[in-house]
Design a protein around this nucleic acid. Structure first.
Lengths: 387, 387
DNA sequence: CTACTTGGCTAAATCGATTAACTAGTGATA
DNA sequence: TATCACTAGTTAATCGATTTAGCCAAGTAG
């Protein structure tokens, strides 16, 4: 019951659904399952109490005007609404009041662990509000498809947008928050982690383990984190005396393998690009992958090639997805608090929607954390590559 | 462009959005970004062409009545709509026509790979229709929360429901499809895999490898597949001469560990319950887990206990989630075509919504497939447990 | 005694579409 | 010539709420 209450009006009780939520509450026994055909309308509730629909609406919504209505009448109204199991028509209500209590969430692909965890965070926050959300995956196709979806969401009258790991290049027509976005746009808040800190944590760890030749897997061009993370690693590497060998870097889906457009790509890509590295005959003792998924794919490639992880090659991921700790070897990775970032994005967006004209922060930064597990170990003196 | 077209009217072009979609098409250059304040309404389009809103609506929707309107007039209307970048108000339209083109999807937890893949399949199918969907995770809390969400979805005027791995015990007020559901209810279609076949494939594989003492991890009580899968394994085991030792079976979240209510539970639970097995001192050479996630958690427990997988213990999962192939050892598992099941569920549901009164199948079955990978191997003669 | 407030409520416009029923004109048919 | 069918639309009701403006009665200040 407690959960039910908070799910309906938590935090925004001023917003008008409060009273109606209260009506809908109560033991199911009292509220008869709507049986014969039609749904119950406001008009019917009004008829039952012998008042006008206007009055009933004002009371159920606890409108300021309703203050002058005696408590006894209000009670009668609430009682009638409950008895009939009145549930306001969402469409009619939204049409008139221009509030839909829904958000649009755009992700690259809903089945990727990264997106799924962020969405879980978003959901966790929305649970305490009366908001719902629509989802769409743009599948990293092209920019116009993303805009297409933005339009579709707007058509559905969402009040705000959360983009996950998706680059926005044009100011959207609605309040928006971008998780892992890096483009400053008016009206857009970006929730990002401190990539410089992430890079220095990672590289210091590898340096302490004695690694000198470190390979890098750069992210997909479509991913909004790709460039900033890349810049951060390059700068940190330079600052710490690592040489950034071109032959030791590979970009995910540069041009090839773009044909394989299955959503399962992440692991496969990591695998394929680790193979590229191996085929080049590049010498390295550690790999810094773009994310956990590609790290896991790369590890498979190394193992298949007869290399041991971490004895022959250390691997560092990024994200700390749920399975990272359970992989074997367990993955050393930079933890992004994905769930928290999702919740934060949702909170910021709702604040903006509620708050009106306050100019939003362009960037909100959260801290990364290096989680050292089993995929990193001291560098071998001489990185001998078998096969 | 092609994607856009199909995303709008694919397959259901009779449904009324077709013409409007066509209007919304066309180069962005032609359609000026809606600048000053208000949105464009039907009335404004009508004013521009000097006709009544009714006519414009009829034409844009390609209503049968519009057949009598000359092509030239229709062209003028379309042109005006495009020029103004007219986009019909979703709420008004839905309120009147009682069609919302949205579905509700209920999952246990959106971040679980199982749910995420099914949703990806649902999405893939909906992409070719004009439907969108709302999601909610009931987090396996209690039955009433699930009903609460069903009501919430109905309030939002979804036209149908897809429940994923969630048990429905009461006939819902809307058309519904349950993925992995096992309760036959009027108006509900269940999409399931053939668990008997899954069980016999699994056990035959283990038998061929010489395993005799096989442990089983039963699923969570909240999961809709739990009982049927369990029954199938028991029956298959009996039929094949396996003895089903009570001490070799553990149920996920029986009573303990229910306190740990984090969504990350899956792996942890598998881990915890493999520990239970080990602590019992039970002798076994193979473990059949409820799903891949618990299998992976269990493998971690075995490795931590100094057992080797598959040399000392073979492990079989269920589902074949994306990461299963990339785990180390790669996971032998029963593949459920999750994406296809999601797409199938979406298709069946839309057919029912479109088809009206055709009584739906109670069950639609898809075939499992045993995917043999690295986590199973011949049984050791004497399963010696270290530690 | 008038004017003004306050309490308790209602009428009616409105949100932006859809759609059944109807009109008015024209040509063909019986 | 009356009837019918067709063309090319229009009118107006409706979906189910929200919300502004205002009505009437009772009380109160001046």
């Amino acid at each position: 019951m407690a959960a039910r209450k908070s799910a309906r009006n938590g935090g925004r009780s001023k917003e008008g659904t409060a009273a109606v939520a209260a009506v809908a509450d109560g033991p199911a026994a009292v509220a008869p399952r709507r049986e014969g055909g039609g749904t119950v309308t406001l008009r019917q509730v009004a008829a039952k109490v012998g008042l006008s629909p206007a009055t009933v609406s004002l009371v159920l919504n606890q409108a300021p005007t309703a203050a002058s209505i005696p408590a006894e009448t209000q009670a009668r109204i609430f009682a009638a609404a409950r008895e009939l199991d009145y549930r306001p028509n969402y469409l009619a209500r939204s049409l008139r009041s221009r509030r839909t209590f829904s958000l649009g969430v755009l992700v690259p692909e809903i089945s990727e662990p990264y997106a799924a965890e962020v969405m879980s965070g978003i959901e966790g926050h929305l649970l305490e509000t009366s908001y719902h959300y629509l989802v769409a995956s743009h599948r990293r196709s092209n920019v116009s498809l993303l805009h297409e979806y933005l339009d579709l969401m707007r058509d559905r009258a969402v009040e705000g947008l959360i983009l996950v790991a998706s680059e926005l290049h044009e100011e959207p027509s609605l309040p928006a928050v971008v998780v892992s976005g890096h483009v400053p746009l008016a009206g857009v808040t970006n929730v990002i982690i401190d990539h410089d800190r992430a890079a220095s944590l990672t590289l210091r760890h590898l340096q302490e383990l004695g690694h000198e030749r470190v390979a890098f897997l750069k992210g997909q061009p479509g991913s909004s984190d790709t460039e900033d993370r890349w810049r951060a690693y390059r700068e940190a590497a330079a600052g710490m005396g690592f040489t950034f060998h071109p032959e030791l870097t590979v970009q995910l889906s540069g041009e090839p393998a773009l044909a394989t457009f299955s959503p399962a790509d992440g692991y496969e890509e990591g695998h394929a690009f680790a193979r590229v590295l191996l085929d080049r005959g590049a010498r390295f003792t550690a790999l810094v992958a773009f994310d956990d998924v590609s790290a896991i794919g790369a590890i498979r490639a190394f193992l298949d090639a007869g290399l041991r992880v971490p004895e022959d090659v250390s691997v560092v991921g990024f994200d700390d997805i749920q399975s990272a700790a359970y992989h074997n070897p367990s993955l050393t990775t930079v933890r992004q608090p994905l769930r928290e970032m999702g919740a934060l994005a949702a909170r910021l967006l709702l604040e903006r929607i509620a708050g009106g004209e306050t100019k939003p922060e362009a960037f909100v930064t959260v801290e990364p954390q290096l989680v050292v597990r089993g995929s990193t170990a001291p560098a071998r003196r001489e990185a001998r590559k078998r096969r």
